[in-house]
């Protein structure tokens, strides 16, 4: 009983690995479904969510907060899925979207650029130069995305529990290692780790609701249903936030207590 996030570049065979791991363990495999779920739940066109999770934020995005809002919806949709456990998520930033949950096995699959170029040429019918250029641009975009939104480099191995290089090792070898690692005791969900997952899902739900209500630039944490909403703004604006936060206690099930903390830095575990 674990959650496995697989981070991958395009044409790195990460999808294949994820699907095989899912079928071997009997876990649900999600990637695009999360976006579809968020699109239905929050009534946002899927294409906007795809852009939010793929393209790096532009300077304008930094002012409009659009991307941060979409990301809150995506995170909430993923957390809803992860609460049910037994999940393989492959795609961008799974390890960052589910941070702080102990039974998440974070894997990164990498492959040599030449092998990726060959795969893209075969699939898209491109020339070598075009395929290489597209892949390099895609990699740079993903790197910029993670750096801008989370301040970390997705290529940094210390973000993952396992990094597997598909070259000498095949897809099946990678599946073996992931299944083996997922069976470790530390990745089995316990009542405590499940509680953390539920708290994360609740915090994400609250944040998505606030963001939908135009309350951007907030961070949310939850502990046993006690929800804290953090804002860096001072007291004057906090009354407005409190007015919007109060109705959420009735709207969102699972909240025991809800509190607004103003003028404080966001805690690192907040979503």
């Amino acid at each position: 009983m674990a959650i496995i996030t697989i981070s991958r570049g395009s044409y790195s065979k990460g999808r294949e690995v994820a699907e095989k791991v899912g079928s071997r363990l009997g876990y649900a495999v999600v990637s695009r479904d999360v976006l579809l779920g968020a699109s239905e739940q929050f009534h946002i066109p899927e294409v906007k969510l795809v852009r939010a999770i793929h393209d790096a934020p532009s300077i304008l995005d930094r002012f409009s907060h659009g991307r941060y809002c979409y990301l809150a919806y995506i995170q909430s949709a993923l957390a809803e899925r992860a609460v049910n456990d037994n999940l393989v998520y492959h795609g961008l930033a799974g390890h960052l979207l589910l941070k702080g949950v102990p039974h998440v096995l974070k894997v990164r699959i990498i492959a040599d650029l030449e092998a990726r170029v060959a795969a893209e040429m075969k699939r898209e019918g491109l020339s070598q130069g075009q395929a290489r250029e597209l892949l390099l641009r895609d990699d740079a975009e993903r790197r910029k995305w993670t750096q801008n939104l989370y301040g970390v480099d997705p290529w940094d191995a210390s973000l993952y529990d396992l990094v597997i290089h598909i070259n000498q090792l095949t897809v099946d070898d990678a599946v073996d290692f992931i299944v083996q690692a997922a069976s470790r005791e530390c990745f089995q969900s316990t009542p405590e780790s499940q509680q953390k997952m539920e708290d994360l899902a609740l915090a994400c739900r609250v944040k998505a609701a606030l963001v939908k209500d135009d309350c951007v630039d907030v961070a949310v944490t939850s502990q046993f249903g006690n929800v804290m909403v953090y804002t860096k703004q001072g007291d004057r604006r906090s009354h407005r936030l409190e007015d919007r936060v109060k109705p959420l206690v009735k709207r969102i099930p699972g909240i025991n207590h809800l509190e607004v903390r103003t003028g404080q830095p966001f805690p690192p575990e907040a979503c």
Binding site: L105, R108, I110, D112, W155, D156, A157, S158, Y160, D161, L162, V163, I164, H165, N167, Q168, L169, F177, A181, R184, C186, F187
Partner: peptide, 16 residues
């Protein structure tokens, strides 16, 4: 040498 693509596998002792 911190680039993971130089290796066949990178293992983190954070959890393993």
């Amino acid at each position: 040498q911190t680039d993971p693509s130089l290796y066949d596998m990178v293992l983190s002792l954070g959890t393993l």
